[in-house]
Design a protein around this nucleic acid. Structure first.
Lengths: 222, 222
DNA sequence: GGATGTGAACGACTTCACAGCG
DNA sequence: CGCTGTGAAGTCGTTCACATCC
């Protein structure tokens, strides 16, 4: 059927950041943090583009959305870019995250300290396996998914990461939405119908591998 | 009447299938396999679109790239679609995969049988940790990354999955390229310069989480 | 009637090119 | 001069609408 008029913005008139642009800002941010720690104070669009494999014009267009931060003839101040990008992406604050499905993937995520650095804090674990419930993993107690409605509000989690089997993904999604979760990062290989007001980013590992096979097959040497 | 509509140019000029389209074909394929197992023999573009959250027109455009498989007034035969999509994506054969970096993420991937089902077989493991080298994980011996040049050709691996720290990602990439690997699925949070003829698909978990925060912040409820 | 295939309109994103400022 | 910011042009992908065919 028709997709209907998906959520269009009614807010103020300023040009909005596209999703593709937001993804590149993340890459710039990572590069800039490294450069800043190396003592680099100024950088040009062409240098930054070089570092992340993007044209200089594209970099300028992306950064222009953040306001007039660049100085003609000089470039951009790395520290100003960093704070501006953080604010634009909404990561100039802490995000509390619930992790549903405590398997190997979840353990990998728990030990990946890149999240913590970016302001993402995992505050709750859930798993349907009774032998896991009540135990601690990486310092956090594993809860029964049936308790999502109480544990999520109690911990203040706003985001959730789903690493559950695809059969239970939709049910968990609905429960999380009802519990007040506002965004879901989904690793289950399934198409999810989202509750109203909940954002979704899906990472489908099987699809990614198939894309790779496709690229290799057509000889895309990128 | 159209001039030469169904002619498939095999010349080296232009790719028939866009990358975005290839990604959707993966989703169709998963859905179709399930439907076929449920005994569904025919399906229309609107039904398939409904299942994966895409417009019917988009589905038809994607499937049109596979040849004239649809019957006006009837729909598509699920089994024909499945084999056609498999061939288009290059997954109508086995792909042998090397896994570099044997951490929690690698263990999750090893135990994810969705890969095996799709024809991806992990045939070699590598890890720089001397305490892991020589041991077996999920039935496979862990090799020293220094042996990539010999082990990769010996196993016949054509693809590689990278779950190493970002510091070593570029060096490993270069070694894999030299060893004949033709595609890399990268999980390291780094921008990689690819050797000629090697394709890349990157999955950057930090970027995905930041995208999610961005979507939530701007109130994109989709 | 029902559903496909496809030009054409549309929209989103990227690249170009250059005016203008430090 | 070097580099930014930005209209304009270009490219790519999606949606529409309808002729066509079973």
């Amino acid at each position: 059927m028709k997709p209907g008029p998906s959520a269009r913005e009614i807010n103020g008139g300023e040009p909005r950041l596209s999703r593709a642009s937001a993804g590149r800002l993340s890459l710039y941010l990572r590069e800039l943090k490294e450069l800043f720690q190396d003592g680099v104070k100024k950088i040009s669009s062409s240098q930054l583009g070089e570092a992340v494999g993007i044209t200089d014009a594209q970099v300028r267009k992306d950064l222009a959305h953040l306001g007039n931060l660049g100085q003609p003839g000089i470039g951009y101040a790395t520290d100003e870019l960093i704070t501006a990008i953080r604010r634009a992406l909404g990561i100039d604050r802490e995000w509390k995250v619930a992790l549903v499905g405590v398997g190997n993937l979840a353990r990998a995520l728990l030990r990946y300290h890149g999240f913590q650095q970016q302001g993402f804090t995992i505050v709750a674990l859930f798993d349907a396996d009774p032998t896991k419930v009540g135990r601690a993993v990486e310092g956090l107690i594993v809860h029964d998914p049936a308790d999502v409605a109480t544990v999520v509000p109690a911990t203040g989690a706003e985001l959730a990461i789903l690493t559950v089997p695809s059969e239970s993904a939709q049910a968990v999604t609905d429960a999380l939405g009802a519990a007040g979760i506002r965004g879901i990062l989904n690793f289950a290989p399934a198409v999810l119908r989202m509750p109203p007001g909940v954002s979704l980013v899906s990472v489908d590992l099987a699809v990614q591998l198939e894309q790779l096979a496709f690229l290799v097959q057509v000889g895309q040497g990128n």
